[in-house]
Computed example of a mutant assay.
Amino acid sequence: MLTVDFDRLGVGPGVKVIDVGAGAGRHSYEAYRRGAEVVAFDQSATDMAEVATMFEAMAEAGEVPPSARAEAVVGNALELPYADGTFDCVIASEILEHVPEDDAAIAELVRVLKKGGKLAVTVPRWLPERICWALSDEYHANEGGHIRIYKADELRDKIAARGLKFTHTHHAHSLHSPFWWLKCAVGVEESEHPAVSAYHRLLVWDMMQRPLLTRVAEAALNPLIGKSVALYFDKPAVDVALV
């Protein structure tokens, strides 16, 4: 389940990509399939070990072009171990809402991006997230949980203030918003609740089969209740003075 539009990012052979806060690796895998040189980066050693194993399996199965490269790296998003301007594309999907020092994290994302490169940032959308918080403290008040709710324009301006040019935005995963509202209403840990289980089966079926009906429904609902908002930026090829 991808949140980022890879066609918009121009990810392909020879493009150097870092997926910061890669988690289970969904965006890293897509970049790898497209032939990029990929770094999946996350603070979780367990997640990165599993991602590294999947990278190997993908290569062995012939799912990636021979020129593609991928590695999984454990580290701190506030101190990315790369030189300025290392990557053509930086992805940070569903991570900033977890980071207390989000300004420092944004500065690092911008720092390692090449001039002329592209940045994609996604976070939970304000309205669906606000409903989740209202329904359940358990949803967000836990170690590693969501510590803030972004308004898209505020996050856009915060990133643009680092000298990047905002280029596009879209919403995604509207069918997931009611699922999380349901989980928050019955209890976040109540995964075996009949209603939660039934909705989860629907989502899995939708992701695997991608039927036209649900594709059309999700596209229509995304502007209204999309669970995530994606923001895209370009780093100017020449330095821009910050005001």
Rank of each mutant, 00 (worst) to 15 (best):
R162I: 00
H176Y: 14
T46P: 03
E56R: 10
A22I: 04
H173G: 02
M208Y: 14
P194L: 00
E218I: 04
K118V: 00
K115G: 08
T169S: 08
I149Q: 04
L9I: 04
G14P: 15
K151L: 06
G35T: 03
L202G: 10
A230K: 10
A49N: 13
L78N: 14
D206F: 12
V99Q: 09
A107W: 10
A36W: 14
W180A: 01
D157W: 09
R8D: 08
A77I: 11
L221Q: 04
H176M: 10
L182E: 13
T3L: 10
V38M: 09
A70F: 11
E79I: 04
W126P: 07
H146T: 00
P211V: 01
L113C: 01
A36Y: 13
T86G: 08
A134V: 09
Y150F: 14
A172V: 06
K235S: 10
I95K: 04
G62W: 15
K165F: 06
V74D: 14
A68H: 13
E192Q: 05
G117Y: 06
P211L: 03
P66G: 01
A219D: 13
Y139V: 00
W133N: 00
L231R: 14
V196S: 05
E60W: 03
R111W: 11
A120Y: 08
V121G: 12
R111L: 00
R130L: 04
L202W: 07
R201E: 14
N222A: 06
R33V: 03
N142S: 03
D5T: 00
V240T: 15
C132R: 11
A59E: 13
G25C: 06
D47K: 09
I225H: 05
L96M: 01
E143P: 15
N142K: 09
E50S: 10
E94R: 05
A152Q: 12
M54I: 07
D103C: 01
V11K: 01
L96D: 02
T46Y: 08
G117P: 09
V51R: 06
V73P: 09
L175E: 10
F233L: 00
V229I: 08
A220K: 05
I147W: 07
K165E: 15
C184N: 07
G10E: 02
A45T: 11
K118F: 01
L155H: 05
A107K: 15
V73F: 14
G23H: 02
S44G: 08
N222Q: 07
H140D: 01
I149R: 15
I106F: 11
I147F: 07
D102P: 01
W181C: 03
A77M: 11
V51A: 13
T86P: 02
A195D: 11
L242N: 15
A134M: 12
D103K: 11
L202H: 10
E218K: 08
P211S: 03
E79F: 12
G23K: 00
